[in-house]
């Protein structure tokens, strides 16, 4: 009995520890709006915001925009992963080839992908695909250089161990180098999924879009529908957080040896 009680209270306290910051911010937000310290047109109450979020998700347009943005981000991410991993392995395995491309790689890594919007518009037109393409480009670069570095920095001992057993080279690649690279590859994938979402949102805001979360946020701001704007921002945040958590979970499950 006493033990159960202890268990309960420790459960509550661990919940409090993990969420105190969140609850505090919500409380401050609520107090500020209740006392009308900020113009209510600019900052709606948390209740109004979450009502807007609920209504948008339950039947309003928010849900559709949410899915469209998620779809575009994942589309871009898949292209980025397929190309990034393959090119990363190719260049990582040929260090001289990598060196000859190093300047270009570093240059495009340092160039904000959003600066390339006009270029992608010229190449791919004003359709949906130019948004996906620019996001895929940004994410692909991140995946590519993480994979390449992972391949280049594989521990030589394991490759030597496999080679001495008489394992053929192509097999060493799949059995050893691939697994050696996985932790670094996952870092690239996780960074890339966040990045593709960022680029997709920005693209939806500014490249003649009629839907998607980016467009929705901008539209709400234009007509001063603040509860919907905040609700849309929170929904986008939930999407980003959810994707990141999904990748972390997968990573911890499949790359169980990471850091050991």
């Amino acid at each position: 009995m006493a033990k159960a009680k202890l268990h309960f209270s420790s459960g509550v306290s661990s919940f409090l520890i993990a969420n105190t910051g969140t609850l505090l911010i919500l409380l401050i937000w609520w107090v500020v709006t209740a006392l009308q310290l900020i113009n209510p047109v600019l900052l709606p109450s948390p209740v109004a915001t979450f009502v807007a979020l609920w209504e948008g998700m339950a039947g309003g347009g928010l849900l559709l925009d949410f899915w469209l943005t998620l779809y575009r981000s994942l589309y871009a991410f898949v292209i980025a992963a397929v190309l990034g991993i393959q090119i990363g392995i190719l260049l990582g395995a040929n260090e001289n080839l990598y060196r000859s491309f190093e300047f270009l790689i570093d240059f495009f890594r340092s160039t904000p992908a959003t600066a390339m919007f006009p270029l992608f518009l010229v190449v791919f037109g004003i359709g949906d695909f130019s948004k996906v393409a620019v996001a895929a480009f940004a994410g692909g670069l991140v995946i590519f250089f993480n994979v390449a570095y992972g391949v280049m920095n594989t521990r030589k001992t394991r490759i030597m161990a496999a080679r001495i057993m008489g394992t053929p080279r192509w097999r060493v690649f799949f059995d050893v180098i691939f697994f050696e690279t996985l932790p670094q590859t996952f870092i690239g994938l996780r960074t890339a999924i966040s990045l593709t979402l960022v680029v997709i949102i920005v693209a939806e805001m500014f490249i003649g879009s009629t839907n998607g979360m980016g467009q929705r946020i901008i539209d709400a701001q234009q007509v001063f529908d603040m509860p919907d704007m905040y609700a849309s921002i929170i929904a986008t945040g939930i999407m980003g957080y959810g994707l990141n958590q999904l990748f972390l979970l997968t990573e911890n499950k499949f790359i169980h040896w990471k850091g050991r």
Binding site: T157, R158, M165, T167, P168, D175
Partner: peptide, 24 residues
Amino acid sequence: FQNYRDALFPWLRAIQNIEYPLLS
């Protein structure tokens, strides 16, 4: 090898490590 940590394959169980050269 001197450094068993770097020589074994951590993504395989110990028994799979022993089996690996036979598999290959």
